[in-house]
Amino acid sequence: MAEYLSTNKKKITAPHFFEMKNSGEKISWLTAYDFTTATIVDQAGVDAILIGDSASNVMLGNQTTLPITVEEMIFHARAVARAVKHALVVCDMPFGSYQVSEEEGVRNAIRIMKETDVDAVKLEGGEEIAHMVKRIVDAGIPVCGHLGLTPQSVHKFGGYGLRAKEEAEAAKLMADAKALEEAGCFCIVLEKVPAKLAEEVTKAVSCATIGIGAGNKTDGQVLVYADMLGMNKGFKPKFLRQYANLYEIMTDAIGRYVQDVKSSDFPNESESY
């Protein structure tokens, strides 16, 4: 068994992220949305598993993250949390679950924690949601922030392009990061921002930064598991490194199964009772 396939590792908690940042240990994240995948991802040794609202795309086939509901996020998060023994488990708060009011945001965060057994929640936005973050943290719930390309605001931005290229937006992102730090975030995801800016933010805040399309000077990295395993065709952004081609492997295996069934080769005598 490979060294990283360990079953006796201690459970990672939010305070560990500060320790890892301060010691210079990089933090590895992947998404997962179901029990079986989460079991594999956890046993492979990642530090954190995100039930992202990307489940809207990956699991439900939507074009954006906007349609997924609190109930659907709870369904996926509950399955993931049941599987995980080692990694920190973080659940996205979906669009509409915290934008209306502080009270509704806190209520939904508490509901997600109570009904899923995850370890933390993640919210998109900066200074404008800092008060919400503080209220949720004050309720005893660890919060991860998310800046840069925030997919819940895709219509506002007009697409999924690189964020904070200009000086004004870069300054706003830095201010947002400091506001989230002050509000109590234990980490901040930086998505699709210039590597230099991500490095500056990482140095400026005490909480950990997790990059996706933000260079390698952040405190850690996150990818969607289906993307890095090559389970889909056509989605190959610059920041994505594919570690397998499961699309071809699975298509080939299923194709051979179909052939074996149609030719009566499966099941054979040894596979029959």
Rank of each mutant, 00 (worst) to 15 (best):
A2H: 13
S6I: 10
S6Y: 07
N8F: 09
K11H: 06
T13W: 09
A14Y: 02
F17G: 01
F18E: 15
F18S: 14
F18I: 15
K21W: 09
K21F: 09
N22T: 14
S23W: 10
E25F: 07
E25P: 02
F35L: 05
T37F: 11
T37D: 11
V41F: 01
A55L: 10
A55C: 10
M59N: 11
M59C: 15
T65A: 07
L66Y: 13
I68W: 01
T69F: 00
V70I: 14
V70T: 10
I74V: 07
H76G: 04
R78K: 15
A79K: 07
V84F: 08
K85E: 15
C91M: 14
D92L: 00
S97R: 02
Q99P: 01
Q99K: 02
Q99C: 01
S101W: 03
E103V: 05
E115W: 03
E115F: 03
T116C: 05
T116K: 04
V118L: 00
D119Q: 07
A120M: 02
K122I: 02
K122L: 03
K122M: 04
L123P: 01
E127Q: 09
E128K: 07
A130G: 00
M132K: 12
K134M: 00
D138Q: 05
A139E: 06
A139H: 04
G140Y: 00
I141T: 06
V143L: 00
V143H: 01
G148T: 08
L149A: 04
P151T: 00
P151S: 03
P151A: 02
Q152Y: 11
H155L: 06
H155W: 10
H155Y: 14
K156E: 12
F157Y: 12
G159H: 08
Y160I: 00
G161E: 11
L162Y: 10
L162H: 09
L162D: 12
A164V: 06
A164D: 04
A164Q: 05
K165E: 12
E166K: 07
A168E: 15
A170H: 06
A171N: 12
K172V: 11
M174S: 06
M174I: 13
A175N: 09
A177L: 03
K178I: 09
E181R: 01
G184T: 03
I188S: 00
I188L: 04
L190C: 13
E191A: 08
E191V: 11
K192L: 07
K192E: 12
K192A: 12
V193W: 06
K196I: 12
K196A: 14
K196M: 09
L197Q: 06
A198V: 07
V201P: 03
A204Q: 07
V205H: 02
S206H: 15
T209N: 02
T209G: 04
I210S: 07
G211E: 10
G211S: 10
I212F: 01
K217Y: 13
K217C: 13
V222Q: 07
L223S: 15
V224N: 06
Y225I: 14
A226F: 09
D227P: 02
M228C: 14
L229R: 11
L229K: 08
G230C: 04
G234N: 09
F235E: 05
K236E: 15
R241V: 15
Q242N: 11
Q242D: 12
E248T: 15
E248K: 14
I249R: 12
T251W: 09
D252C: 04
A253H: 08
G255Y: 10
G255C: 01
R256T: 12
V258N: 08
V258H: 09
V261G: 06
V261M: 12
S263G: 05
D265G: 15
F266L: 03
N268Y: 13
